[in-house]
Write a protein that binds this DNA or RNA. Structure first.
Lengths: 187, 187
DNA sequence: TCAATAACTAACCAATCGTTTAGTTATTTA
DNA sequence: TAAATAACTAAACGATTGGTTAGTTATTGA
């Protein structure tokens, strides 16, 4: 009966996500969110409840976006080589100007301090675990490796992925290439 | 002729540094700094000019603190194995509770957004370059390696170091161990 | 011992923070 | 077409942000 919403929630969340991605959680103010999302504070609060609410939805949106990259990896059948390609794809994914804007998950993990919000932290850990399990699945394509080796390699890869994300913030393209080539030099 | 300062600048900066290290730049307020440094705002501003001033001095202090770890590495004569030990030392260095508080340099690199302060960014890049040069010096102990290989390995190590710092924030001890063992498995 | 002076205290600055709310506008169905 | 109702606007909330400043206190060399 009443008037209809003039905005689309997933659409404005994607805009919010990009702002958080570029600027971090603390630095991003409600005022900036209003401007970027193109809607009023009232609308933001009625749709998402709080700044943290907007952020948690943004994290979900980010995961979906990243999942499009991961789907390519899921269907790949060339094992570790597919993972290497994923690392390179990821650099393009985070590309901003000369440097990258990192990964929203990694950026957030680095931003949150001693009194970190548990809900946010849990969301981050869950995501790294998800990607790690995908790595394990792919590494298992090589049936000559035992499970302990695979577990260790998966930890190595997920943390390297994490590191790559940080690295895009201040290391140049050549350094990032050197990094990836070294990770996969025995592959 | 006037009264003497009741505080010691390097001493209060170390306290500020620890606060920034734990909480990040944005999250740390002047109020928190007053409390942690144990001196009044007036004293902070008369000694360091601004919040950014306190932070830049904190970065210097952090580098000095980290240099004590690096000195152990400088005098080590066991090449890459010394670097491996440095990685493990670093985990202890950043240890907070269950997780680590990362590296102040890495944390800051991840925190700063698109309108990053150039002075701060330059300070971060300078530091990574400094450590990388140290890695190169150590890797050159192995005279069988050519310079291109050494350059690539140094980039790999400094970015891995960067990644390890991020990783201490949300990965557990076993995962970090897996990570380091994989980095140095051929050493 | 006392004038000089820097270190200090504490109140205050405007601006902005995340959040709320009173009042207005547009849309819908009965 | 008109009552109902949700979407909207915009002003304001108290708290806190980084930063300043007037006035007080302590220490010093002369």
């Amino acid at each position: 009966m009443p008037r209809t919403k003039q905005y689309n929630e997933p659409e404005v969340i994607e805009k919010a996500m990009n702002l958080f991605w570029r600027n971090g959680y603390e630095t991003t103010s409600m005022q900036m969110l209003e401007k970027e999302m193109g809607i009023n504070k009232f609308s933001i609060y009625s749709s998402f409840g709080s700044k943290k609410g907007v952020f948690l939805e943004s994290l979900k949106c980010y995961k979906q976006k990243l999942n499009r990259l991961l789907n390519k990896l899921k269907t790949a059948e060339n094992g570790a080589l597919g993972i290497k390609q994923y690392f390179y794809d990821f650099i393009d994914f985070t590309k901003e100007t000369e440097y990258g804007k990192g990964c929203l998950v990694t950026n957030t993990a680095n931003e949150i301090g001693e009194d970190a919000d548990e809900q946010i932290k849990a969301s981050l850990i869950a995501f790294t675990e998800e990607v790690k399990q995908l790595f394990i699945k792919i590494l298992k394509q090589d049936t000559t490796k035992d499970i302990a080796t695979i577990e260790q390699q998966a930890d190595f890869l997920i943390i390297s992925m994490f590191g790559l994300s940080s690295a895009t913030r201040i290391f140049n393209k050549k350094q990032l290439d050197n990094y990836i080539e070294n990770i996969f030099k025995n592959t």
